[in-house]
Simulated assay, not measured.
Amino acid sequence: MTVATALVSGNDPLPQLAEEAVHQALEKAGLTHANGVLLFLTPEFSRHAQQTITAVARTAQCTQVAGGIASGVFTESGWTLDRPAAAVMVFGRGLSLGHPEAGKHPVLSYAGGTFPPEWSNTGPRFGGSFSGNAGYAEALVWQQSRLSEQQRCCVQLLGAKVDIGVSSGLQLLGEAQVVDSSNGFDLEKLGGQTALKSLNRLLPAALRHPTALQLHHVTAVLMEGENNTRNALAEGRYHPIPIISANPDNSLTLAERVLPGQLLAWAIRQPISSEADMRQTLDQLADQLAKTTDKPACALMFSCIGRGPYFYGGDDRDLDVLCERFPGLPVLGTYGTGQIAPMTQGAHCLNRQTQNSVVTALVSKQTKDDHVQSIT
């Protein structure tokens, strides 16, 4: 397997930036042409997307060009936000892109907009979505070197085994409690206490007063299934809900309605805990990978725009942790508005879209014994 990446940025969204990225990646890989190319562009390219895609296909001598517009892009060499940039990953010698076989192997999926409902139960998927930026044309997606009218991209990494991990970045504050009462978007009581008292009781002292000024650090987490909060988080059976405001009657206004009888926990998202969660996710992936292969050939990473350099104060610690854990590994990634990953629910595998998460896929050589891809 031969894989390489390149990231090129400039002052203007010109196709030449993407062409240069392909040239650099091919040279790194020692290839004259590619079996497949993943191409992600920043929003400035929206008006020139097809022209850029065509230039990439011509340069790579390959019609299997897939990807989309993202808020920002990155490789193992660095990241780019708020500037025109093209990030590419080229594949050769035993690895290529192809039409997905439903239900068999994880499918790389990327959406321009919201998560398509039909992706929920059509076999394991991983990837991301981007809803677009103000001032630019709608988010675009491409496959087989052409813009997708449905704004959806679905490709399979042929000849590859894919191990997937999800870092939610959440640090739970205690176990889930049963919602006692709610009124519209206002959560009134859970676990026998008012919503605000329940939250204050579990918050670190530094964030406890005044709570109304610290809500951006905290989120409500709706749990699904059995009353085991940490199992639900590890298995992806959770749904974060932002807290909008704290009210004089000690209720909390949430971004979505919750109903009496549902299980809800409180969690905090801070840089130090999110980085620790990313390390744990990668350790689990590495342990899983060690059972079947020596090392990964590359990684694909889909991060939230609220989780990258803006969150970590100018550095992307999630990317740094990945590069530290797997030195020299080719990495291609995007910052978007949603992340797509499979979750386990009994014997079934369902896909979901999350926010403020990092979905990491380690790609390695497929062997004859690789019938089922692992999900961490």
Score class of each variant (00 low, 15 high):
residue 1 M to G: 01
residue 5 T to D: 03
residue 6 A to V: 06
residue 9 S to Y: 12
residue 10 G to S: 09
residue 11 N to L: 15
residue 16 Q to E: 12
residue 17 L to P: 03
residue 18 A to T: 15
residue 24 Q to Y: 06
residue 28 K to G: 13
residue 29 A to N: 10
residue 30 G to F: 04
residue 30 G to S: 06
residue 33 H to T: 11
residue 36 G to E: 02
residue 36 G to C: 04
residue 38 L to C: 11
residue 38 L to T: 06
residue 38 L to F: 05
residue 49 A to H: 04
residue 57 A to T: 08
residue 58 R to M: 08
residue 60 A to I: 05
residue 60 A to T: 00
residue 61 Q to S: 04
residue 63 T to P: 13
residue 63 T to I: 14
residue 64 Q to H: 01
residue 65 V to G: 00
residue 67 G to T: 05
residue 68 G to I: 00
residue 71 S to L: 03
residue 73 V to N: 04
residue 76 E to P: 02
residue 77 S to H: 14
residue 78 G to D: 05
residue 78 G to T: 13
residue 84 P to I: 07
residue 89 M to F: 05
residue 89 M to P: 11
residue 93 R to M: 13
residue 95 L to N: 15
residue 96 S to T: 08
residue 97 L to W: 08
residue 98 G to M: 03
residue 100 P to I: 12
residue 102 A to V: 15
residue 103 G to T: 13
residue 109 S to E: 01
residue 109 S to V: 00
residue 110 Y to H: 07
residue 110 Y to M: 05
residue 118 E to W: 15
residue 119 W to P: 06
residue 125 R to E: 08
residue 127 G to P: 07
residue 128 G to C: 03
residue 128 G to V: 01
residue 128 G to H: 14
residue 135 G to T: 09
residue 136 Y to D: 15
residue 137 A to Y: 12
residue 141 V to N: 04
residue 141 V to H: 06
residue 144 Q to R: 14
residue 148 S to K: 01
residue 158 L to T: 12
residue 160 A to N: 10
residue 161 K to H: 10
residue 166 V to W: 04
residue 171 Q to A: 09
residue 177 Q to C: 06
residue 177 Q to M: 08
residue 186 D to A: 07
residue 186 D to I: 03
residue 189 K to N: 11
residue 194 T to A: 00
residue 194 T to P: 03
residue 197 K to V: 15
residue 198 S to F: 08
residue 198 S to T: 00
residue 198 S to V: 01
residue 199 L to W: 12
residue 212 A to G: 03
residue 214 Q to Y: 01
residue 214 Q to M: 11
residue 219 T to V: 12
residue 223 M to R: 13
residue 225 G to T: 02
residue 230 R to K: 14
residue 235 E to P: 04
residue 238 Y to Q: 09
residue 245 S to Y: 11
residue 246 A to M: 09
residue 249 D to M: 04
residue 250 N to Y: 06
residue 258 V to E: 01
residue 259 L to W: 13
residue 259 L to V: 09
residue 263 L to W: 05
residue 266 W to I: 06
residue 270 Q to F: 05
residue 270 Q to E: 10
residue 272 I to V: 11
residue 276 A to V: 04
residue 277 D to N: 07
residue 280 Q to D: 14
residue 283 D to H: 15
residue 288 Q to S: 07
residue 299 A to V: 01
residue 299 A to W: 06
residue 310 Y to P: 14
residue 310 Y to E: 12
residue 313 G to K: 05
residue 314 G to P: 10
residue 318 D to Y: 02
residue 321 V to Q: 09
residue 321 V to F: 03
residue 321 V to Y: 03
residue 323 C to G: 10
residue 326 F to D: 07
residue 332 L to C: 11
residue 333 G to R: 02
residue 336 G to V: 09
residue 337 T to Q: 12
residue 339 Q to A: 06
residue 339 Q to L: 02
residue 346 G to P: 13
residue 350 L to Q: 03
residue 352 R to L: 11
residue 352 R to A: 15
residue 355 Q to P: 11
residue 355 Q to E: 15
residue 361 A to W: 00
residue 362 L to D: 00
residue 363 V to A: 06
residue 366 Q to Y: 03
residue 370 D to A: 02
residue 370 D to Y: 01
residue 372 V to Q: 15
